[in-house]
């Protein structure tokens, strides 16, 4: 019967499709090992992963937004403005609170609140204002970018040195040798995967991205789910910034430039469909790590100029989508 014959073929196809990003990651690691013996060193790997964790945390938020058929172009600018405001809040609180964790925690709280508010604004404009997500977030991208330039007066906002010293361990220290950014990235990823796969919210995101009308007729509150994805995105941008500020201790108009595209690229390489309806968080994690490794491998070898980093990333994005489409049709 056709049933019996169809099954193995289908199983094979699905395997290839889901495993695609993992295969690419494995190949990259192999390439890294053959090119440079330092590739597998503890320092190199923790460095790559810690740097990837900012984009990674943001990209996990973007996975939800994109799965539900939305898009958020403002995340890079939002990160910059959150970083700027956090620094200003901390500097401003020093006279009243003194140097210490109190100031840092207050700054973090301000950052998370601002992220939530910015996400809510995007979400409300899109759901209640009925404006396309692309337009709204293109607008807020400009607004946030310009705000940080304004707050920094065209220059750089720097965190007070003594507070920066207190805050520093959040990026540079870790638990059992694993830097905190990697730990946070991993926790957010696991949480995200569970929410996507095992909660009604995750299922509703996919349903809305697949067909909004069906979702509406199936008694899903489409506007609220959409709004939640943007709030989640804003909050996760803030979480990424909490880890980023201690790394540099400053924010300027160039902070977070093009992060939105890197985040979207990570999501797409991971196998989430850009037009919505299907998303997977673990794929996004793999996608972001792939992007990070490309830059790292280019830096570790001498044959090809590291300035071609962007070109390689671009090729990978296009390849990823081509491969996914090919496997879907077969």
């Amino acid at each position: 019967m056709p049933d019996a014959m169809a099954k193995p073929a289908r199983a094979f196809r699905i395997d290839f499709k889901t495993a695609g990003p993992l295969v690419a990651l494995a190949l990259l690691v192999l390439l890294g090992i053959t090119l440079n013996e330092n590739f597998l060193s503890y320092n190199n790997l923790t460095n790559v992963l810690a740097r990837s964790s900012f984009i990674g945390i943001i990209a996990i938020g973007a996975t939800f937004v994109i799965t539900s058929g939305g898009l958020d172009l403002s995340v890079g600018s939002m990160a910059a403005v959150i970083a700027g405001v956090m620094i200003m809040v901390m500097n401003w609180l020093i006279p009243s609170m003194g140097i210490g964790w109190g100031v840092v925690l207050a700054g973090m709280l301000a950052g998370v609140l601002l992220g939530g508010v910015a996400g809510t604004f995007n979400g409300l404009m899109i759901t209640r204002g009925r404006i396309e997500a692309f337009i709204v977030t293109l607008g807020t991208m400009g607004i946030f970018r310009s705000l940080v330039t304004f707050l920094a007066n065209g220059g750089t906002l720097s965190l007070n040195f003594e507070v920066a010293d207190v805050y520093r361990p959040v990026y540079y220290d870790g638990l059992l040798g694993v830097p905190y950014p990697i730990i946070v990235f991993a926790l957010v990823a696991i949480g995200g995967e569970i929410v996507m796969r095992r909660t009604a919210f995750g299922r509703h995101c996919a349903a809305i991205g697949s067909n909004e009308q069906v979702a509406r007729y199936s008694s899903i509150n489409v506007d609220n789910v959409r709004l939640l994805t943007y709030i989640l995105q804003g909050t996760l941008v803030a979480v990424a910034v909490l880890l980023y500020v201690p790394r540099l201790g400053s924010a300027s108009s160039t902070t977070g430039v093009l992060w939105e595209l890197e985040a979207i690229a990570g999501v797409i390489i991971g196998g989430t469909t850009l037009k919505g309806g299907y998303g997977r968080v673990w794929g996004t994690v793999v996608g972001v790590v792939i992007l990070g490794l490309i830059g790292n491998i280019l830096n570790l070898q001498s044959l090809i100029s590291p300035y071609l980093n962007g070109a390689f990333q671009g090729v990978i994005i296009i390849l990823a989508v081509l491969l996914q489409r090919g496997s879907r049709n077969s």
Binding site: N211, S218, G277
Partner: peptide, 29 residues
């Protein structure tokens, strides 16, 4: 096709889309 079913998804998520809360255990599906 336009309002009833999610054509890109399997049978299970389509069947339970209207009544997901029946399949929650401690908040998880």
């Amino acid at each position: 096709k336009g309002k009833g079913l999610l054509l890109n998804m399997g049978l299970r998520p389509n069947l339970t889309l209207l009544t997901l809360q029946k399949h929650l255990k401690a908040g998880f599906l």
